[in-house]
């Protein structure tokens, strides 16, 4: 462990044995991470008769799209895609709309109760979600919002985590810029819209993608509130395909899993750097 920093001279000298062992361990972790994904993709491309042919060889030499066609014909993929976009998009938009002004107020002004209100909000972060599911389900049922987008989206509108993360960014934003804009006669809303937001767009985008991916991937809550098949999101539809009627059709299920994952993977690939930075900020700093 002598060379903990990568730039020290010793680490280059010790390359062979130590470095190889370190890489081996990390590659092992990569294999653990990737093996299940290889199986997902491989099975989705195998003809149903081939699924159990050679359990240790996930990839086939004769890939077929028959499972994808099967999924397309049996599931209402377009409808579910729309539901996913509305649900995840709705949660993201609403959370940002609510969190941005709140975070701005906390960061910018001293007012009676600032610290207290902020602390109370933080208090909601470590509570396990199932505790909220029961009363919120009862509430949505009473408001007659079961099987509606509003019922799926509304209870997730407020996120103390989003407020926390944005507040940190807004506080770090140089006050001199705000002062200068104010001297130019910018009002509060314009200041927020035209100065603070554009200058924090990186952090806000990253947060939006984190919220979007998280909501896209939700299973229990959307299924609880909207058990009607026409309201299924892609993630819920994949979950419903497992087990179910007379055993799982593995090829089709994996094809559906690939379809459900492509969008979040794409979002991650496009925004990798920003997203990882924002994730790290959520944990340390």
């Amino acid at each position: 462990m002598s060379a903990i920093t990568s730039h020290s001279a010793t680490s280059t000298r010790q390359w062979p044995v130590r470095q190889i062992v370190v890489h081996l361990v990390l590659i092992l972790a990569v294999a653990f991470t990737f093996a299940p994904l290889v199986w997902m993709l491989g099975l989705s491309l195998k003809a149903p008769a081939q699924i159990f042919e050679n359990p240790l060889r996930p990839l086939t030499t004769s890939p077929t799209l028959v499972n994808y066609r099967d999924v397309a014909s049996r599931l209402d993929v377009l409808r579910q895609l729309t539901n996913s976009v509305i649900f995840a998009g709705g949660v993201t938009l609403l959370q940002l709309l609510i969190a941005i002004p709140a975070a701005y107020a906390f960061a910018r002004w001293k007012f009676r109760g600032n610290a207290l209100i902020f602390s109370l909000m933080l208090l909601s972060i470590p509570i396990p979600f199932v505790v909220y599911y029961v009363p919120n389900y009862v509430l949505m049922a009473r408001w007659d919002l079961l099987n509606t987008y509003a019922g799926m989206i509304l209870p997730q509108a407020a996120s103390a985590y989003a407020i926390f993360l944005l507040r940190q960014h807004f506080r770090a934003f140089p006050r001199a810029i705000i002062e200068a804009a104010r001297l130019d006669g910018a009002g509060d809303l314009r200041l927020l819209w035209q100065v603070v937001l554009p200058n924090n767009i990186g952090a806000i985008t990253a947060l939006a993608i984190i919220i979007f991916i998280g909501s896209w991937n939700e299973y229990i809550w959307p299924l609880l509130i909207a058990p009607d098949k026409s309201m299924y999101t892609l993630t819920v539809a994949v979950g419903a395909m497992s087990g179910g009627e007379g055993g799982t059709r593995w090829g089709a299920t994996m094809a559906a899993a690939v379809i459900a994952s492509v969008f979040t993977l794409g979002a991650y690939l496009v925004s990798r750097k920003r997203l990882l930075k924002a994730m790290a900020e959520g944990g340390v700093k």
């Binding site: 994904l37 939700e218 299973y219 993630t235 819920v236």
Partner: peptide
């Protein structure tokens, strides 16, 4: 190593 974090628990469980 971050990749599974963007894939749903639902998909993970089924694989």
């Amino acid at each position: 190593l971050f990749v599974p974090a963007v894939i749903s628990s639902t998909v993970g469980a089924i694989i």
